[in-house]
Design a protein around this nucleic acid. Sequence first.
DNA 1: GCGTCATACTCAAGAATATGAATAGTCATT
DNA 2: AATGACTATTCATATTCTTGAGTATGACGC
Lengths: 193, 193
Amino acid sequence: MALRHAVLAALLDGELSGYQLAKAFDMGVANFWHALPQQLYTELSRLERDGMVAGREVVQDARPNKRLFRVTDAGQAELERFASAAAKPSFIRDDLLVKVQAADSVSTGPLIEQLTERAEFAEAKTALFEALLLKMRDGLGEDEFLKYGERIGPYLTCRRGLEFERGNRDWCRRTAQVLRERAHTSEASRVRS
Amino acid sequence: MALRHAVLAALLDGELSGYQLAKAFDMGVANFWHALPQQLYTELSRLERDGMVAGREVVQDARPNKRLFRVTDAGQAELERFASAAAKPSFIRDDLLVKVQAADSVSTGPLIEQLTERAEFAEAKTALFEALLLKMRDGLGEDEFLKYGERIGPYLTCRRGLEFERGNRDWCRRTAQVLRERAHTSEASRVRS
DNA sequence: GCGTCATACTCAAGAATATGAATAGTCATT
DNA sequence: AATGACTATTCATATTCTTGAGTATGACGC
């Protein structure tokens, strides 16, 4: 029962279809909670069954029909309950960190490659988040927006996402650099030191 | 098959029992991969069955006996294979971020409390990681250690952990501050603006 | 007129992860 | 002398997440 609240929180921004929700989750923009489309459709069905979201069919002619969902009062109450309950500690799960942990006993070539790739990915996400923040505050200064804006939840979580991706980018670059330099320095000289 | 590699990577530091491994994972120090003791015991059994780790019984008199595990050649080969394969993108899963996403439509009191608590937790982890880094490089300067040190994997991942927790701490503090300031600014004045 | 991409969604099976409960001895505190 | 905390591990069950496949329509470029 955790994806549930992420979906509810995402739907606060307005009505969304399962498909749109899936895109938002894929971006990682909405909630910094990862989920595949199938999970979201399943969760939306469950939420509707439990009366926490309400869906309405929207007929489209140029595309397949879709169902837009909105949070009901019961859903809102559930969010309130969730927000007041103790939070579980967060955790990262990252293949790349596991690989770097083992860096001393595996070939560093592929590692450097993956770190470089990840750094680029993080850089792209950084740019995306920056643009998103700018768009959300819509001309206002950050301080002003945070004081008087009407919808700051997504803005605040996006700020965390931005810092996280900057951290990722920097760490990946530095780590790749360290591994590259050690590849130059020969094994022999390392042992001698 | 993902916890598997985290366990193998953690065991590179030396022989560990399931219990010790569980503590390392609980700290989040070892791999930045979250797992409960039960999962680790199960995974160790599987790894032993598959010949990737070898366990030996250690008889203790003041305590229950334990089994220490080390990585075998097959385990090492599996790690090598894993490190060369493409990494899945990382993701954070954080209740607190979901709650802040919904900040505009839930009571902010409990949120501020949880953010403050989390900031303190992150601060404590920051201090822990800093001490750990200092201990790992054992007197050497960072650059020197990273060039000539023999075991830099855990050091590099710890650096990421440190930056992550610093980011957490700062974001939690700033976010709590924003919510506190908005609590002062009345709802009425916000709507007027 | 063909392949490919984007929209929009569903179903099933399997792997991974989380939860809850037990066992059992030692040590320190109240 | 009872209570709780730490070491050390196991078993069973439940939930969640991932993987893979499948359906259908229309738009776009070549």
